[in-house]
Design a protein around this nucleic acid. Structure first.
Lengths: 168, 168
DNA sequence: TAAGATTGACTGTTCAATCTTG
DNA sequence: CAAGATTGAACAGTCAATCTTA
């Protein structure tokens, strides 16, 4: 059905033409990874630490600050997440005792998220197995020089996404 | 806080060491794209066609079959989705009239999903703008030769993910 | 009034239980 | 009993409203 007859018609000719052959197969490889890799990382985190990707990264980002503190809006920006999403995430982390929130003393509009001792311990416990997973699934299978090439391509893709959606 | 003093301690030394410097930055670029690209594609589909990624691909996969038919389990396999998820997706597509389901006559355990005329029209309508988006966000920003390199790397990452999680 | 932040309703995915066919 | 498929409850993320501080 809907075989290409070689003729030209305006619309509805055969199956919709996606991309050129090599593009199709590259896109299939890419979207398979986009579909499978994040859930695989999530499952490892949930299984080993009962944290999801965003929760883990929230702890990680806080731990990178000298005072283990960041404003909600900063955190959202860096995590490429909406403030709403981050607010839900931090609320969950707060009820687990890993983070606490307090208004910024210098400007009450800001809320600071602060990593607790328990949160820091949790992260230190969790990080090694997660890093190991990332290594195993990604870095171990890259060939020399590939990492730099991938990074460059990803940075351009990121820029294109940002350009297409000015302000999330 | 938690500065590296140069000393060796068993645990809890400084911030958890992720990966080496260049790996960290490559991973940040990569995870940013993993985080942002799929939602960006979803938003384009939802906005322009009121379909999500999985719904769109279900229609697309069916359209690639000569008889516009596939078994649920086949469809799930190819979409890298669970049968449960696919079942929910197809139910939605069915209530919209884009797909219909019927038991396989040769073996009643299988269910066939069949693209309707309306579903095919929907796909034909939807595909061009989606392809355009994929082009703009991905292929347009890749440099010559990069596509092949990316594909090769992604195929290896995919294999690693599959190997790590034998049977989803 | 604008920017930061929170909330609640809604939607899609997951997981475990269940049903059905061979 | 196993494989294919479906279902419903639980849960995370999104979106639009709302609240607060300056």
């Amino acid at each position: 059905m809907t075989k290409d007859t070689g003729e030209q018609r305006a619309v509805d000719v055969g199956r919709p033409r996606w991309l050129k052959g090599d593009e199709v197969s590259a896109w299939m490889s890419m979207s398979r990874v986009l579909t499978l890799l994040p859930p695989a990382l999530e499952r490892q985190l949930e299984r080993d630490a009962d944290l999801n990707w965003m929760e883990y990264h929230t702890l990680a980002m806080l731990s990178e600050q000298d005072d283990h503190t960041m404003r909600m809006s900063q955190l959202a920006e860096r995590a490429s997440a909406s403030l709403s999403r981050l607010s839900h995430v931090v609320k969950r982390l707060e009820t687990q005792g890993f983070v606490r929130r307090e208004p910024d003393l210098t400007d009450g509009r800001y809320t600071n998220a602060i990593l607790t001792i328990a949160g820091y311990r949790k992260l230190v416990e969790t990080a090694p197995s997660h890093v190991e997973t990332v290594r195993k699934l990604v870095f171990d299978v890259l060939e020399p020089g590939e990492m730099e090439a991938l990074k460059a391509a990803f940075d351009r893709i990121f820029a294109a996404v940002e350009a297409a959606e000015p302000h999330r």
